[in-house]
Structure formats: structure tokens, C-alpha cells
Design a protein around this nucleic acid. Structure first.
Length: 459
DNA sequence: TCCTCTGACACGTTTGAATAGT
DNA sequence: AACTATTCAAACGTGTCAGAGG
């Protein structure tokens, strides 16, 4: 699986000295994004994160929260999130693990969530962590609230985009920068499949406190529904069993990891990284896939890239590889992953940080990707899209070349596909309201969440 | 029959208005 | 009058469960 392949890559190979943050002059002044609560994310990821999607929209948990640095304090930026398919497959939960259940369904309308503070000065983004708490996921393809539309039983990961823009209608589209974190990948579901995930969510999500432990739940359900008690007990037993099956480290990371002190962070991280190799449900699937020809493995990536209906990020060329001339490809990295020294070393220095080298227009654009032929393009553009070394908290430097100039205002983008997206009056006013509270001029921020900002991602 | 999805439900958290106190 | 603290209820977010539907 993509995620696992990514993580694999993270684990593999000795860290490159050029990757060391702050240690390389080339990185000075670069934008850096750090994922908050990485341990929590990893704890979920080890088990196989699931995110509930509902018609009215469901928040993510853990929710996306990042820190930014390296921005120009006085320059304004907008910050966005979208969800990218991990691969071209649909999954099913079978016998306590995820299995491929066929090809992915055609992607629903692509949505981008705009952070309500956007646009805001770099100083604003850097002074505190940036939360995407209110981002909601839905399976309602007709959703008119601007929630991000996903397919159930498909795997996704969030992408964070930052664009320098004075306001929403004067964005300079020459470069925007994209960050991904492998541990944030998840399977969209309409009901939890893995009881371990359910338990983790209950343990960590304050809104689910009512379901914790000495089962007010059990009592409640017991009195309400005698038949349900048996089922509940069964589930509890399963959960208990699964806990027993889990290594002791798992319990530690799930309960201490979340609120633990920073001193232990690195150490725990290294433990987590090792666990990733051993306990991620996707690693088992990976092996399974190797035999069945189901989900693409690192070794089958080439074939996969050409066959998939939903191109995975792996089909992009790795930005850093190109930029720094290091590892030749994610797949080859995986090949060396058995060394086992990889991510531990890397992560001990670079904890969930994605860094963007400053845009250098003089760099050869060797990774231009033409839009997927199966996707109706909203504009006649050619995208230069490059991706960070797969598996590392990634960054993609985007250079958009289209028939419009780089000065092309956003309105041009937003205007595409009018039939697909509702007119502004359908949009929620939340973002605009928030904007007023923050004292920034946001313009019609709300519209943004409705439009396929990055239409090339709507494969 | 199996799998997936949906809606009602109970419970906890969050939020904001109303009120009281300083 | 202005500010702060407290209280309370409504709104919201959550997982559970039974049942519907393909």
C-alpha cells in the first residue's frame, strides 16, 4: 500500500545529510511544516486509521493540526487541505484485516478545505499551531456544505497546501507548496471495522468519553436492550483479546504517547517506528498483495502506476530525489528497507517535519505530468508536480503552467465546472464569520471549500 | 447470507447567552 | 458602567445498535 510503502521508505536507508533540518544552508528560510500529535497519529496508523464519513459530515479524529515555520512574517498566505486517494483500490474488512475488494470507484467531486483564517500573514500562521478541527468528511456526493467528499472503504491521506496570496483573488499561482504526512493516511468508513480503532478513538476523543471503560455504555445498553448485552460483551471480549494480542508497547504509545512529555518523544518515536514495521495491518496486506496481485507493492509499483484508475502519489516523481539526487525511487528505497536502520535514524532528527526547498525556477522541470486522460480537466493546463521522497513527511512543489498567466486570479479557477458546484449562496457562512473574528479580509472564503482548487487531483 | 450504509439514540463536550458579583 | 466569574441550556460531536437495502 502506498502508505506502507511510504513508511517503508521512511524506515529505509541511512538518513541523508542533506535532509537534516537546519543543518543544510540550502534549507535556510524554507517553509517547514510539522504535524502535531505525531505519536497519536502513529498509534492510529499502526493499527490502520479509520475515519467515519457520514452524510451530514464527520470530523476527523485525530484531527489535522500542524505547525508552520519559515514563512515570511509580513506576507500573506492561504492554507488548504484536500484528500488524495492512496491508491486505486477499494477495500473490505475481512477477518481482522483489510483486504482489497476491487478497483476504486470513480473519484467523487474534489473538494478542498480552506483554513478559515486564510489569508493571513506568515506571522499569524507561525505563532501558533494550525488546526483543521472543523474539517468534515462526507460520503454525500451531493453535499452542499463544502465538506470533503470521500468514498467509503477507500484509503486517503490529507495534503496540506500553502500558497502565498494577499487575498483570495490575487493568488500568484507560480508556486504553491504541498505537504503530506504518511501517518495521516486513513481508510474512510461508514462504520468502524477494527475494534482497536474504535477503542483508540474512545480513549482519546473527549466527545466519546461516554463510551469509556466501566461501561456506562454496557449498563445503558444492557437496560435498554438485553439482546445487545451479549453482543456488547462479545465486542468487549474481542477488544480485550486484541489488546492482549497487542504488544505492551502499543498500550504505552496509545496512552502515554498522547500526553507524554517531550523528553520521551524521540525515544518513543524510535520504538514506534520499529512497531510500524511489525504491527501495521498494511504490512500484512502488503505481503498478501504480493501474492495475490492485489494492492500494489513497492516492487510492483511500475505496473501499478500504469494500471491504476486512481493514480497514487507514488506515480509522481519524487521531488527530493530529483532535487538532491539521492534515492532513485521509492520502490528501490523499499528494497533497502530491510536494513531497518532507516526511519529511526531519520526520525530521530526529523520528527514529522516536512520542508520545502525554496522554489528555484532555474531547476529543470523534468517531472511534468500531463493530466490524466480519464479526467476531464477544468482548464487546459500542464502541471509540474513533484513529490517529496515517498514516505517522508512529504512536500510537493507545484508549478502550474497553463494558458493563463501566473498572475491569474483565483476566480478563474473557481469558475470551472459550474454545474458541479453550487453557487455561493449555498455555502456556509462559517468561514466568513470566522474571518471577521480574526480581523482579516477574507473575501468570499467560503466558496473555496466548494471548488476543486487542484483540479488535477480529481482523477 | 453477507456486506455496507443509515438513522435514532444516549452521553459527553463545547459554546454562548444570561445572570450575579466585584 | 465595565469587567469577570458562574450557571445553564442548546447545539454539537461521538460511538452504538438495529434494521434496511443491495
Amino acid at each position: 500500500m502506498q502508505s506502507i510503502r511510504d513508511l517503508k521508505t521512511n524506515f529505509s536507508g541511512p538518513p541523508s545529510s542533506t535532509m537534516a533540518p537546519g543543518g543544510d544552508a540550502y534549507l535556510q528560510g524554507n517553509i517547514r511544516m510539522t504535524l502535531e500529535d505525531p505519536n497519536l497519529w502513529r498509534t492510529f496508523h499502526e493499527i490502520g486509521t479509520e475515519m467515519i464519513i457520514t452524510k451530514p459530515g464527520r470530523r476527523m479524529f485525530p484531527h489535522c493540526k500542524v505547525n508552520l515555520s519559515g514563512l515570511i512574517p509580513c506576507a500573506k498566505y492561504i492554507l488548504l487541505v484536500d484528500m488524495v486517494p492512496e491508491d486505486g483500490f477499494r477495500y473490505k474488512w475481512n477477518k481482522e484485516k483489510w483486504e482489497v475488494a476491487g478497483k476504486a470507484e470513480p473519484q467523487p467531486p474534489c473538494r478542498t478545505y480552506l483554513h478559515p483564517d486564510s489569508p493571513a500573514p506568515g506571522s499569524h500562521w507561525m505563532k501558533q499551531s494550525i488546526s483543521f478541527l472543523k474539517l468534515k468528511l462526507t460520503n454525500n456526493t451531493l453535499d452542499q456544505h463544502g465538506h470533503i467528499i470521500l468514498h467509503s472503504m477507500h484509503r486517503y491521506h490529507p495534503r496540506f497546501h500553502i500558497v502565498q496570496a494577499d487575498d483570495l483573488f490575487s493568488v500568484r499561482w507560480g508556486v504553491f507548496q504541498t505537504f503530506t504526512f504518511p501517518e495521516t493516511s486513513f481508510t474512510a468508513v461508514t462504520a468502524y471495522q477494527n475494534t482497536k480503532i474504535t477503542k483508540l478513538k474512545i480513549d482519546h476523543n473527549p466527545f466519546a468519553k461516554g463510551f469509556r471503560d466501566e461501561g456506562t455504555t454496557k449498563k445503558r445498553r444492557a437496560s435498554k436492550n438485553p439482546g445487545g448485552l451479549e453482543k456488547q460483551a462479545k465486542i468487549s471480549e474481542m477488544t480485550r483479546d486484541s489488546e492482549e494480542d497487542s504488544p505492551p508497547e502499543f498500550c504505552r504509545s496509545s496512552f502515554e504517547g498522547y500526553e507524554g512529555d517531550e523528553g520521551e518523544l524521540q525515544k518513543r518515536k524510535e520504538e514506534d517506528e520499529i512497531k510500524e514495521e511489525r504491527y501495521s495491518p498494511w504490512s500484512a496486506e502488503r505481503e498478501h498483495g504480493m501474492r495475490n496481485g492485489s494492492p500494489p507493492t513497492a516492487d510492483s509499483q511500475d505496473l501499478y502506476s500504469t494500471e491504476q484508475l486512481v493514480p497514487a502519489p507514488a506515480s509522481y516523481q519524487p521531488y527530493r530525489f530529483h532535487e538532491y539526487g539521492k534515492s532513485p525511487s521509492p520502490s528501490s528505497s523499499v528494497g533497502s528497507s530491510t536494513s531497518g536502520s532507516g526511519r529511526s535514524n531519520f526520525e530521530s532528527r526529523v520528527p514529522d517535519v516536512a520542508t520545502v526547498p525554496e522554489h528555484d525556477s532555474s531547476k529543470p522541470r523534468t517531472h511534468e505530468v500531463t493530466p490524466s486522460p480519464c479526467i476531464p480537466q477544468d482548464y487546459p493546463g500542464v502541471l509540474n508536480m513533484s513529490m517529496a521522497q515517498a514516505g517522508k513527511p512529504g512536500v510537493i512543489g507545484h508549478h502550474i503552467y497553463n494558458h493563463y498567466s501566473a498572475e491569474q486570479p483565483l476566480a478563474q479557477w473557481s469558475s470551472s465546472g459550474p454545474a458541479q458546484y453550487p453557487p455561493p449562496h449555498h455555502l456556509t457562512a462559517d468561514y466568513t464569520t470566522q474571518a471577521v473574528h480574526h480581523g482579516y479580509h477574507h473575501g468570499n472564503v467560503a466558496e473555496w471549500s466548494q471548488y476543486p482548487l487542484f483540479s488535477y487531483s480529481c482523477w
